[in-house]
Structure formats: structure tokens, C-alpha cells
Simulated assay, not measured.
Amino acid sequence: MQQVTKLPNGQLSEPFLVESRRTSIYSIIIERRKLMVKNEKLSLQMECTLLFQSHPYMIENLEGLALRLGRKIEDIKPVIELLIHQQIIKLMGSNKESPLYCYNEPVVITDMDIKSELNNL
């Protein structure tokens, strides 16, 4: 026979229900922490992107980026790797000890042939 406990609101509950609520609260806390970390990485990704877009001719290493952004190198490195993968920035040279990064200017098309598009309608 299982023991019944009285909750603060006067309802009766079995111990396993109380334990399952406790477990549920812990899982919610863990999920919120994961979300906070994800939001922090997104924020840092935006900061890095804006830094390179604002200074398109800047060439910088991880130490310099950490100094400019006021962040730790360990936090910046995975974000820089993601931005390289997304082709927002590019790696310059082959110096593996202190790699240099620069902004990868997007291709802009200035000529448009609107007449041919209108004829297709």
C-alpha cells in the first residue's frame, strides 16, 4: 500500500505524483537553461556578423575578436566556425596557430532585365 501525502492546498496526493512533479520541474529548468544558451549563441552570432558587416575590410584573429566583443575565445570560436560554414566570413591564409578572418562580401546583382520578365506574363 502506498502512502498518501497532503499537499499545501489541502489535496491528497500519492508520493510518486509528487516525485513526478519534481522531476517535471527539473526537466523544465534544464530546457530553459538550454534555451538560454541557444539564445546567447544566437546573440553572439549576430554581434560577430554585425562587427564584420560594419567593418568589411577588417582582418582579425580570435584574440582580436574576443577583445573587440568583450567575450571569451572559447565562446567565439564555435560561432566563427558557424559563420564560416554559412559563408558570412572567410578564413584567410593557412596559419593554423592564429588564423585570420574577414568578411565575405555578398554578391550583388545590379543588372536586371525586366522587359523579358514582363513579356513572360
Rank of each mutant, 00 (worst) to 15 (best):
Q3V: 10
Q3Y: 06
Q3A: 13
Q3M: 09
V4D: 03
V4L: 09
V4G: 00
V4N: 03
T5Y: 15
T5A: 10
K6F: 02
K6W: 00
N9A: 01
G10R: 05
L12Q: 08
S13Q: 14
S13W: 09
L17I: 08
L17Q: 13
V18S: 09
E19D: 12
E19L: 15
S20T: 13
S20V: 05
R21A: 14
R21G: 11
R21C: 12
I25E: 15
Y26T: 10
Y26I: 11
Y26P: 00
I28M: 06
I28L: 12
I29R: 12
I29Y: 08
I29L: 13
R33C: 06
K34E: 10
L35E: 11
K38H: 05
K38Q: 09
S43C: 05
S43G: 12
L44R: 13
Q45G: 09
M46Y: 03
M46W: 01
E47H: 04
E47P: 00
C48G: 02
C48M: 12
C48E: 04
L50Y: 06
L51D: 03
L51I: 02
L51T: 05
Q53S: 11
Q53A: 13
Q53G: 00
S54P: 01
H55V: 02
H55W: 03
Y57P: 00
M58F: 08
I59C: 04
E60V: 07
N61R: 01
L62T: 01
L62A: 02
L62E: 02
E63F: 02
A66K: 01
L67W: 01
R68Y: 06
R68V: 07
R68T: 11
R68H: 10
L69S: 04
G70R: 04
K72T: 01
K72Y: 03
I73R: 06
I73N: 03
D75H: 06
I76P: 00
I76C: 07
K77F: 04
I80Q: 03
E81M: 12
E81S: 13
H85G: 07
Q86H: 08
I88V: 15
M92C: 13
M92L: 15
S94H: 09
S94M: 04
N95H: 09
K96E: 14
K96D: 10
E97Y: 03
E97I: 05
S98F: 06
S98E: 15
L100M: 13
Y101R: 01
C102A: 15
Y103N: 06
E105A: 11
P106C: 08
V107F: 14
I109Q: 10
I109F: 11
T110Y: 09
D111L: 07
D113S: 12
D113T: 05
I114P: 00
S116L: 07
S116P: 00
S116A: 12
E117A: 11
E117Q: 07
L118G: 02
L118M: 12
N120A: 13
